[in-house]
């Protein structure tokens, strides 16, 4: 295998709430190669954000990472080494070094991560000063440079503005600038354009692509929009109820999806430019409550190809098809997952 920047192995993050345990992420594995973009798609509540937060250990109680490995290749003293991020404590100096410096994150609603009481300049300079030992003055110069990089006009004036004085698109650009301040190897983008308008979304997507090339960073791109995935990602994982159901390159995902959920998802969106009068394909029912995840394949109650006695028994194993394509479905293999509850496979 080629060397990977990030390898997630069997990650499990659960929330121990008063009403029960939410297995928000339950055995997720995927790899990201340096400089590449991995897209994560899935419907609301399938665990996309929690996966992203888990990488940086930004999970707060009642949530806890209960298992798995997050192997990250970092350069330390000029030598490459692979470390398991989960070995570091959530408040340790190491993880703090990694956050922002080597792995940065941007969020859906930029307002929640920008402090309304400080100017853009203050916040950007602060982000730079945390990781780099420079003077305040050169931090501000660097901030101006970054704002130029994210194509915000009149960067100098912008430094003195407060977040609420900016439009949604501008705020997201500031967030990106902040994320780039540490020149990260990996950028986790959690639905960065969902709150934006179409034309602004287009601009931000273009910007992110060109910055990715310029900085040579890898991206973990989380979204529920298959159009955005098609544009941004090279590899894609499809999640459903805390699990990866299919994992493949983006071409195959759209040309030859295998999992019934992926197929149904692709067919249920109206394809712009191809108007037809018939009804859309739908997925019946709704996503079950996270407290009540069905036994066996979590998708089986909604699946059009449900096989009684098979799909509702045990979780199907991740089955490799050709190349890097894997799928978790009994249509492709009878293999069940080696069960962690001690049930026979």
């Amino acid at each position: 295998m080629t060397n990977m920047l990030l390898q997630i192995k069997d990650l499990r993050t659960h929330f121990f709430t008063e009403s029960g345990v939410v297995r928000a992420v339950d055995g997720v594995s995927f790899d990201i190669a340096p400089g590449k973009t991995l897209g994560v798609v899935g419907e609301s509540g399938c665990g996309k954000s929690v996966t992203g937060y888990s990488i940086l250990q930004l999970i707060n109680p009642p949530g806890r990472i209960v298992g798995g490995q997050i192997l990250f290749e970092r350069e330390k003293n000029g030598r490459k080494e692979v470390v398991d991020l989960l070995k570091y404590g959530a408040r340790s100096e190491d993880i703090r070094q990694i956050r922002g410096n080597e792995i940065a994150m941007i969020f859906q609603e930029p307002m929640t991560s920008l402090d309304p009481l400080f100017t853009v300049g203050d916040q950007l300079a602060e982000a730079i000063l945390v990781h780099q030992k420079v003077s305040k003055r050169s931090a501000l110069d660097r901030a101006t440079e970054l704002l130029d990089k994210v194509r915000l006009p009149q960067a100098r004036e912008l430094l003195n503005k407060y977040p609420h004085q900016l439009s949604g698109g501008m705020r997201q650009r500031v967030m990106i600038a902040m994320a780039l301040s540490g020149q990260p190897k990996l950028l986790i983008a959690d639905e960065p354009t969902t709150a934006l308008d179409v034309t602004t979304e287009g601009q931000i997507l273009d910007l992110m692509q060109s910055l990715q090339e310029e900085f040579g960073m890898a991206m973990l791109f989380i979204t529920h929009d298959l159009g955005v995935i098609a544009e941004m990602a090279e590899e894609v994982v499809v999640m459903y109820l805390g699990r990866v159901v299919e994992k493949t390159d983006v071409r195959t995902l759209f040309d030859a999806p295998k999992h019934p959920y992926t197929r149904a998802l692709l067919e249920s969106i109206p394809k712009v430019g191809h108007k037809h009068d018939g009804p859309l394909q739908t997925i019946e029912g709704m996503v079950p409550s996270p407290f009540n995840i069905p036994q066996g394949c979590p998708f089986h109650p909604r699946c059009a190809r449900f096989m009684p006695g098979i799909c509702d028994e045990a979780v199907p194993a991740e089955t490799p098809l050709e190349r890097s394509h894997t799928v978790r479905c009994y249509l492709y293999s009878e293999q069940a997952e080696g069960d962690r509850y001690g049930n026979p496979a």
């Binding site: 287009g202 997507l205 929009d225 298959l226 159009g227 098609a230 983006v250 071409r251 712009v272």
Partner: peptide, 9 residues
């Protein structure tokens, strides 16, 4: 129309 992210890689 040009801005819509189209589900076609």
């Amino acid at each position: 129309l040009s801005s819509i992210p189209k589900p076609d890689p």
